[in-house]
Simulated assay, not measured.
Amino acid sequence: MLPFSAKTEQVDRCVTFVTFPDVKLLDITGPLQVFADANIFLGRTAYSTPIASYYGGPVETDAGVLLNTRRLAGIGLDEDDTLMIAGGLGVFPACRDLRLVQAIQRAASKAGRIASTCTGAFLLGAAGLLSEKRAVTHWRYCDQLADACPETEVDADPIFIEDGRVWTSAGVTAGIDLALAMVERDHGRDLALELARSLLVYVKRPGGQSQFSEALKQQKRSATGRFDALHFWMKDNLTADLKVEALAERSGMSARNFARLYTDDTGLTPARAVEQFRVDAARAMLENPNVSIKTVAGQTGFGNDERMRRSFARLLGVTPQAYRERFAVEMADSL
């Protein structure tokens, strides 16, 4: 692979990944691969990526893979460097390890950028680094993070959040998006897009994009899971007849019984759920500036752009055009 040809800032940066027993392997390897590939594109070691733990030595991940780590206190960090805390189920006992928490506090006082992937946010919180900050973690743990860190504004929706020098990301693969955003900040958008294409991400998702789809939201909202299969069929058939009568027939119920049971189970009427599915799909399509708004409306079941505009205004408080202006991303070239 040829070195990346764009002019970039000649600053060597250290991104230190903090681990602990039962850390989630992908929380480390996903972002780490972004920085390693950035070195290949740049043709030099722009990023060093040590993996650290409190004691150093081998640390077993949740996948059973052993990582050879360095002692966190032995890694020198400065204002050009990043301290990145990984997540995983092991983060909860790690939060009770006072020595590790204090070591993170000391390292964070030197680093210019502090970050977490997934539930690594809990360790940032335990170290007092999320106080008066806006943060995100995996949607399943957002309420728990809000309880653990009452001085933190926890936003359950975005893929990642940057608040000053503190960056937090949602579940697992969102750490890749976080790392791409950091590379863009350090070396420019062109390199970040090249990396996205190389990693088969195709587009570099903006941090404000929702971390889970409407189908997953409905699963979380459902009390019984009775309509999960219907939700995923709806997601894939947005231009079909999704009126109550058609959905009821597909569910093997009368229209009246279906509407009652569906609303009791999900807290939404079938019509509002259909609208939310269509808005969710339209949001994703609008992030591609090469697709016209009229095409988006047609392919997501709205029928026309005026109907889509009304739904966006009702559910999101913005027009489709305003949403596109905020979240459209430059599409990487075809592979």
Rank of each mutant, 00 (worst) to 15 (best):
F4Y: 08
T8R: 15
Q10A: 07
V11N: 12
D12P: 00
C14G: 05
V18W: 01
F20L: 08
L25W: 00
I28F: 01
D37I: 09
A38Y: 07
S48N: 12
P50Q: 04
Y54W: 07
G57M: 10
T69I: 03
R70H: 14
A73V: 03
D81P: 15
L83K: 02
L83I: 02
G88T: 03
F92W: 08
F92V: 02
F92I: 01
P93K: 08
A94F: 01
R99V: 04
L100I: 02
G120D: 04
A126R: 02
S131F: 00
Q144D: 07
D163F: 05
A170N: 03
A170D: 02
T173H: 05
L178W: 08
A179D: 03
R185T: 09
G188V: 01
G188N: 07
R189H: 13
D190Q: 12
E194V: 03
A196G: 11
G207C: 01
S210N: 09
Q211D: 03
E214C: 06
K220F: 08
T224R: 14
D241M: 12
A248C: 01
A248Q: 04
A259V: 05
D265N: 10
Q276E: 10
M285E: 09
M285H: 11
S292I: 08
S311R: 08
P320Y: 00
R326N: 15
F327E: 09
V329S: 12
